[in-house]
Each structure stands twice: as C-alpha cells, then as structure tokens.
Design a binder for these strands. Structure first.
Length: 166
DNA sequence: GCGTCGATCTAC
DNA sequence: TAGATCGACGCG
C-alpha cells in the first residue's frame, strides 16, 4: 500500500507517478482492483483551472488538507469526481483520477467503484475502503496532454498536466 | 435570495 | 449537439 508521504509532493509529480499503480476499492466484502491509466494535476490558487483558484470555500478547503486525503465532489448534476490531495498540509493541490483500466471517463469510474460524497475528506487506507497499491511494471510510456474541460482557464488551459499511460 | 455554469456522459 | 440535473459560487 502506498503511504501518505507519496502524496506530499507537487501534484504534477504525483499525477505522473500514480500511473501504473492500482486503485483498490473495498465495499461490502468485495474488493475491486484496477490499474490507474489516466490522471490530471491541479495546483494551488494561481492555477486558474483548479478548484483552489478562488481560495478556500466550504467545498474546496479539502485541497489544503493532509496529503493522501480523498477529495470527492459532485458536478454536472450527476457525476462524482475522485481526487487525491497532494502537497504539504496548508498548500492546495490534488490529482484527479480520470481513468482506470477498462473504464473511460472520471464520472463512470466513480460509479463503477461506488465512490460518492461519503468518502470526501477521508484518508486513503483500509479504514475508508479506498487505497492505492504499488504497480509492478514500471516500463511504460507516458503521454502528456492539456487537461480536459478547463478551456476557461486561459494560459493554464495549455499546461501539459494530463498524463495517460500508453 | 437568485442566476449561472461546471475537472461529464449519453443519446439523438 | 443538446439535454440531464444540482449544488457551489458570486453577485447584489
């Protein structure tokens, strides 16, 4: 199992390093385990694509919490998004888990793994039933692209903060 | 209080 | 290409 200090780094580094590891979900005695194949990095208040861009609010303050904290939010009236908080406590940052093997899209991923608002603010681990396990194979190529769905963020829309396992 | 719109997905 | 669907956010 990956430890919290793995997440105590810049979100861009963590997003890249998460590829190839396994997202594990345990609910009602059933354990689901999928390889992470797509992530996006979101930064602090100067990242105009990040939820942190307007400072701390009731929803987004979790981005300033301990690294390894689960940040789940509801959007478009129907989808939950799964993020892991990165960086030291007090500095905003998160990695959006956009894709796992055999599943396309961040909204479908959370549905498949029974992830909803109840996990928001919990720490990754056996207790919350959601954690990351180290992948074995590190020999793969990583595709780097701009982030999806954040065209409003001006210059920040161009940043290559999306990572896809090839 | 109220209007706007989103780190999306699906069907037409 | 638009509709679903709702809560966070920002303005007043």
């Amino acid at each position: 199992m990956i430890r919290p200090d793995f997440f105590e780094r810049d979100s861009v580094i963590v997003a890249k390093d998460l590829l190839g590891n396994f997202l594990v979900r345990k609910t009602q005695g059933e354990t689901l385990r999928y390889k992470i194949i797509e992530t996006e990095a979101y930064g602090d208040s100067k990242d105009l694509a990040s939820h942190a861009r307007h400072g701390q609010t009731a929803r987004t303050k979790i981005m300033w919490d301990h690294p390894g904290t689960i940040y789940v939010y509801f959007t478009y009236g129907m989808h939950y998004m799964l993020n892991i908080v990165t960086g030291k406590k007090g500095i905003a940052g998160a990695v959006l888990i956009r894709g796992i093997e055999g599943c396309v899209g961040p909204g479908r991923l959370t549905k498949k793994l029974f992830i909803d608002k109840k996990l928001n603010g919990r720490l990754l681990g056996k207790k919350s039933g959601l954690w990351i396990e180290k992948g074995d194979d590190k020999r793969f190529k990583i595709l780097t692209t701009p982030r999806i769905g954040i065209d409003y963020s001006g210059e920040w829309a161009k940043k290559l903060h999306r990572f896809v396992l090839q």
